[in-house]
Amino acid sequence: MNIYRYIFRRLAGLPPLLLGVLTIAFLLSQVSQVDPLNSILPERMLSNPAAVAAAKARWGLDKSPLTQYFVYLQNVATGDLGVSFRTKRPVARDLMQRLPATLELVVAALLFGSVLGVATGVVAARFRDSVFDHAVRLFALFGSSIPVFWSGLVFLSIFSVQLGWTPGPGRLGSRTAAGPPITGLHTIDSLIQGNWPMFFEALSHLILPAIVLGWSVMGIISRLVRGSMLDVLSQDYIAMAKAKGAGGLRVLLRHALPNALIPAITVIGYSFAYLLTGAVLTETIFSWPGIGSYAVESARALDYPAIMGVTMLGGAAFLLTNLVTDIAYAIVDPKIKLQ
């Protein structure tokens, strides 16, 4: 199938899937039975009938759940995700403001995790049972098992407080004002504006949280790639390649690696979608104003419009990532056909 037709067909399938996600999220919010006014009104005003009536009218809670659902769908269709109970701002605006911070962090973390994970996995497989192999496996084990909140605090304490090699929490220095946003990604914006000091500052703030977050991904990828590589390296076509005189590095990178990458691509794709809304601990430790912390704060406060918005964003991220992952499969392994 033509790749463009395939992408179009998959994209056309997104709205019904998102509608399903939204409907389930809405039903769950109705099932929870907890009064949303608890998060809208201050504690004292909950016993004030006039304040309760005013709040219900203002937030549309005086309407039936069915009416609320259809009004919400109508608004979503026009790009209006409602107003957050908590921030009192449009949810779409909150998400757009936080998305660049998360994207910057997640992309950097995945770059670190994937490159290092693949590289260490390949080398560990190549030198199976060597000291390097054991060291990589131990490092990967730590990465995937140490809680991010702990490694984050320890890394901050060592590299930021004790050694002073990296800056503290935040996307920029606490006394630095970001320039006018273009993409919202400080590294990209500063490059576009030619502001090199700002670029290096943004980059230096990204290093520690990206390593902490990427380490957990790296651990999984490294072990997967190592396992796949060992499997692939024992295949007949590898022996054939060597018999035909292919060099060691060529066999490793050209013949074995592409076939061993399939499971890693799945994990990278899944991790991207998951971290987009799930990097909450890293975001909290590093005071990173991203989607993950927004999601958790919204959930704790029963901020239904925000919860629905994050759910939709997460759903869209998973669906799009699946699409990209499927396309990546076909690119890496020509035997896989897009259907």
Binding site: W165, T166, P167, T176, W196, F200
Partner: peptide, 20 residues
């Protein structure tokens, strides 16, 4: 290379020093 640059950048940009 990135680390010393970042420290210099932070210091350079703290001209009007807000209280944080």
């Amino acid at each position: 290379l990135a680390m010393p640059f970042s420290i210099t950048a932070g210091e350079a940009m703290a001209e009007s020093k807000p209280l944080v």
